[in-house]
Simulated assay, not measured.
Amino acid sequence: MGMLVMGFGVSMCPHADFDRNVTFILTGSEVGLLYDLIGVEDPKSPLFGRFFYEIDVNRFTRDEAIDFLTRGFRETGIDVPRDVIEILVDMFNGIPGWLIYAANLYLRGIKDLTMVREAAVNEALNELNNFIRVKANYSTINARRTAIALKCIANGNDAWSKVAECVEDQEGASVSTASLGNIIASLEKLSIIKDYKYLDPVYNAFA
């Protein structure tokens, strides 16, 4: 990550310093990863001290999500029944990214909402599996324990002691506090979990 951050920052700096009409927009759901990429809190980063403006797009309320999809579908010229919109909203719990994903599938002709949910679940599982595969490039033990921790959390273990017990049961051996702590911290940094719960309910399918 260090070399990536350095290269990314060096390539941006000339434009950030001299091109007043150029604005960089970086988006993503993994807030901690974006902070690492930009390096705004790292004095060694080429982008350290540069001005940036952060916009948080939080989960919509049910009414906001219904209005969001209603307006979006209307702009495409397609009349979608209210009950379909409400099912999509309840299915994805107001998360903007999944609402857009589901709406795009619907507009592309996938009207079976069960298939829409299955597609979203498969996408989420692919994201988590890719995340674990990347970890395996550095440590197979850490990757395996991360996968176990994700499953434990998906199965309702919502406290440190519960997750630790579940991981150790699956491993058949004790796991150090530091090791599990690093795993939990990395999952929180990537905005996958918070307080031992998935921020994104679709990820619960990882169980």
Rank of each mutant, 00 (worst) to 15 (best):
L125K: 15
E118R: 00
M3P: 00
R144G: 10
N137Q: 12
T140R: 15
M1V: 13
E41A: 14
T23P: 00
R108H: 04
P201G: 03
E64R: 01
P96Y: 09
S179A: 12
F131E: 09
G97H: 03
N21E: 11
P46F: 07
L69K: 00
S174Y: 11
A205H: 11
A119S: 08
M3A: 15
G7W: 14
I132A: 01
E127L: 15
D83K: 07
N155T: 13
I25L: 14
Y138C: 04
G28C: 06
I85F: 06
V84L: 00
E86V: 10
A149D: 06
D169V: 05
L113T: 04
R62T: 14
W160N: 08
V202W: 03
V121R: 13
D112H: 02
D56F: 06
R20M: 04
R59I: 10
L34P: 01
I78N: 12
E118C: 00
F73V: 11
E127N: 13
I66P: 12
T146Y: 05
G7A: 15
A159N: 13
W98Y: 10
D195C: 03
L4F: 14
A185L: 14
D79C: 08
N142T: 13
P46D: 07
N155Y: 12
N122R: 15
D63W: 14
L113E: 02
A178F: 07
K162T: 10
N126K: 12
I78Y: 09
A16D: 01
N137C: 06
N204A: 04
V80C: 07
A16M: 13
S191W: 09
N104T: 01
R133D: 07
I148C: 00
Y53I: 08
R20D: 08
Y106M: 01
E168S: 01
T27P: 01
D17P: 00
V57K: 09
P43F: 13
R71T: 14
A65Q: 14
V163Y: 04
L128R: 02
N130L: 10
N142A: 12
M12Q: 01
V202K: 03
L4N: 08
V31W: 13
D42A: 12
S161V: 11
N21C: 06
W98S: 01
D83L: 00
V116P: 07
P46Y: 15
S45C: 14
M91N: 02
S174D: 05
A154G: 12
I66D: 08
E41I: 11
R59C: 05
I55N: 04
D195A: 13
D158E: 05
D19G: 00
R74Q: 15
D42Q: 13
I192C: 02
M115R: 08
I132P: 07
E41R: 12
D195I: 04
P201Y: 03
K151L: 09
G49Y: 15
K194F: 13
